[in-house]
Amino acid sequence: MKIGIVVFPGSNCELDTRYVLKNLLGQEVIMLWHEQRDLEGSDVVILPGGFSYGDYLRTGAIARFSPIMESVIEFAAKGNPVVGICNGFQILLECGLLPGALVTNGSLKFISDDVIIKVETDNPIYTSKYESSQLLKMPIAHIGGSFFADDDTLEEIESDGRVAFRYCDAKGNANSKSNPNASLGNIAGIYNKEGNVLGLMPHPERASESLLGSTDGLGLFESLISFN
């Protein structure tokens, strides 16, 4: 399987993501510069975390107009897997591949911490290596990760079963106490309608080796690989 990781000016998680996919999971990984249009035969495209364009204007707002994004949007429309992690999630929202927006954390603070998320919706591409409702420990590192959508959109996301992951406590309770950034509905990640585009704020690539304190993120990448 060939995995394309898009590199924007200001991306900073692309090498961690490549390390997990290539060194730990033995996949072919190619880096795709944002100015190119060719996805070079990628089977999966990942938009990594970071601070594309310095987060100027709004997070992801400038990156969405990079030439490669036109190809990514076409690629997603054909049903291919596209994953946005952290800043990548913000870019997917800005370009309209996913609904809603991410706003400044309720605390106004940059949060760098481990959180617990629950696999909320089983998905054949992304969660086959997880149990239903499995709890996962992964780090978050962001200031603009509070998920927001208007009432109708939120209702649609919830009723269509498109919440991928929800912030919760160690017992799986999703409430205001277990909501690190004041996201609506404790939402940590969502799918598009077709289920092939995933955006999430936590960093699975930083939770893929026991040395880093958790291997719970590995399942997401293993699911992706086994799907292809």
Binding site: L57, R58, L93, E94, G100, A101, V103, F148
Partner: peptide
């Protein structure tokens, strides 16, 4: 298109 995000 650019300066505002109509969602928020």
């Amino acid at each position: 298109k650019l300066l505002s995000n109509p969602v928020i």
